[in-house]
Design a protein around this nucleic acid. Sequence first.
DNA 1: CTTCAAGGCCAT
DNA 2: ATGGCCTTGAAG
Length: 325
Amino acid sequence: MICSICSDKAEGYHFGAISCAACGAFFRRSVSDQKVYSCSNRQCNIAHDPTKRGGSCRFCRFLKCVSSGMMPQDVKAKRTASTQQNVTSLYRNMNQSSILLIDQIIVFRRNIAAERQMFDSISRSTNRTNLIISLHQEFEMLRRVALGCPFFIQITEHFSIPYLGTDSKIMNDPLSDLLTLLFVFEACYLTGVKGGVQLDRLFLPNMLHVDLSEVLFTEFLECDVHASMDPYRSILNAFSYLVQMVSRSFQSANFDEPILSILLYKCLTETVPINYRHRFAEVNRDSLLTDLNRVDSTAFQHTQNIASQIHQGARAYKEAISSIW
DNA sequence: CTTCAAGGCCAT
DNA sequence: ATGGCCTTGAAG
């Protein structure tokens, strides 16, 4: 067997890909230390070369690891090993309605994933025009799926109908705040899961991505004509914040689906304007969170921290995006 | 029991 | 920072 990253002799699977121990160790360090790499040409040769030590480009090596099938989620999966155990004991500690709610959220996220129009280019960066088009598509889809989903209807029932605006107003109604939050949530989750944290790259849910290394991001900002630089400063800040803070937290917390669902529910219900909040939703949320705290207080702490980061990130993102919407 | 793969350690 | 070597835990 040969290593699918550096073509050296492989010794078996590491984090989901056949690789040598060295590339496995490199990948593990990259993820667990949350390194950030950058490279201007992005197609360096990664072949193993015994004559030089540590010579190859880290950005490209990591990219090769990911594209060869290594999964950041698998780092720290085994030794802590609590994931599966915690999920079962989490379910044991919950009442039936909480379990049903979590299942609904899991189905909800899967429905969204199934409905989503994927851009085929996983490895090609986007430009602003593509970004705007994909945002419109994404928000239309989120709106449609969300309003067909019972738990979403429940938490929004006090305001959803009168506020169903059209595109021009989309950033100004409470529903779009929820959709923005969904979008930011999925973007940060994916960025963590796909190793975008190391690549300084924000993955959007439909697999477009935005590079944040200085040169490439400047190109992104300048690729359309009428670019007075000012409004785009906030785009850079917002995107950087999402990658550097929220995606990182997602990656290190490494939640499984039920805990992700609890986090999402917490974020969504908190995004509903305070005088429109649904009483049952509040009760449900508190119940989910106390159950989580009882079973896994570390994960509970993470949900608290990440939730507040997501709220900040969604605010920054909304501001940045509305300037180009 | 054995095997596989993850994390820790540490000389380089 | 790297990668070889060792220990550890889970799965078969």
